[in-house]
């Protein structure tokens, strides 16, 4: 009874939100957005695109125009991974026993699959400025490959210290490239390499370099979170 009353109350709230959003001037009707009075019009301008050099406008915004935001976002992810590692730190730890004996086919087929996933993720990361994708999904695919290895082998432990080092190196290189922009050009994270023609692999200045670093950082962070979730305290 209480649940039904709550459901009706919250549905009423949703209807009120819909009614409030429907009749305002500042909120456009769904499906008929005019970009000419928005800030995205400047991003889609032809001169700006040839200046930035990235064919994927979303990548241009994430890394190029709002690179400082992305630095903060990666820091948030780093802090949450740190919190997870803090909560799961035991004196003596061991791998979580899944009570599953992998057979020959699973053990060796999953290694083959891991290779293919690594190649696909590298493709997605390095083509982030040309096709959909980029550092965030590519790093997540690397982490799912590591997760596959964990699930396929009940004794597998990845080199967690190596992940920590990789994450730190990628994060510091991100900041160092930003500082180079401050020295060689005028402001933090500014593009100081000449952006070639739009649509080629070696174009868009520092955008591919930063996206590769973001991919490595996100992948190693999520992989270390997965490793933390698969450890438990040794009860012996």
């Amino acid at each position: 009874m209480k649940k039904l009353f709550g459901l009706i109350l919250f549905m009423g709230l949703g209807v009120l939100i819909i009614l409030a959003l429907n009749n305002t001037i500042s909120f456009p009707k769904f499906g008929s957005v005019d970009l000419s009075d928005r800030v995205a019009d400047a991003y889609l301008d032809n001169d700006n695109v040839s200046e930035v050099g990235s064919a994927n406008i979303v990548t241009a915004i994430v890394v190029g125009y709002r690179g400082f935001d992305t630095l903060g976002e990666v820091t948030v992810l780093f802090i949450s991974a740190l919190g997870v590692a803090f909560l799961f730190s035991f004196k003596k730890e061991k791998r979580l026993d899944l009570k599953f004996k992998p057979n020959f086919m699973l053990k060796h087929g999953s290694k083959l699959l891991f290779g293919i996933m690594l190649v696909v993720s590298l493709y997605i990361i390095t083509h982030g400025h040309l096709t959909p994708g980029g550092g965030f999904p590519g790093g997540a695919i690397i982490a799912s490959g590591v997760l596959l290895l964990y699930l396929a082998d009940d004794k597998f432990r990845s080199n967690i210290k190596g992940f920590k080092v990789l994450e730190g190196v990628a994060g510091s290189l991100f900041v160092i490239i930003g500082l180079l922009g401050l020295i060689l050009a005028t402001s933090f994270l500014e593009n100081f390499i000449a952006s070639g023609t739009v649509g080629q692999l070696l174009s868009a200045g520092i955008i591919p370099i930063i996206y590769v670093l973001i991919g490595l950082k996100v992948g190693s962070e999520i992989a270390s979170v997965v490793d933390n979730f698969l450890t438990e305290e040794e009860s012996a």
């Binding site: 994927n56 979303v58 959909p132 965030f136 999904p137 997540a140 799912s144 997760l147 997965v226």
Partner: peptide, 13 residues
Amino acid sequence: DVAITEAVIGSGL
């Protein structure tokens, strides 16, 4: 872009 990210993260990780 968002669809790829959501497919990897939301349904897998």
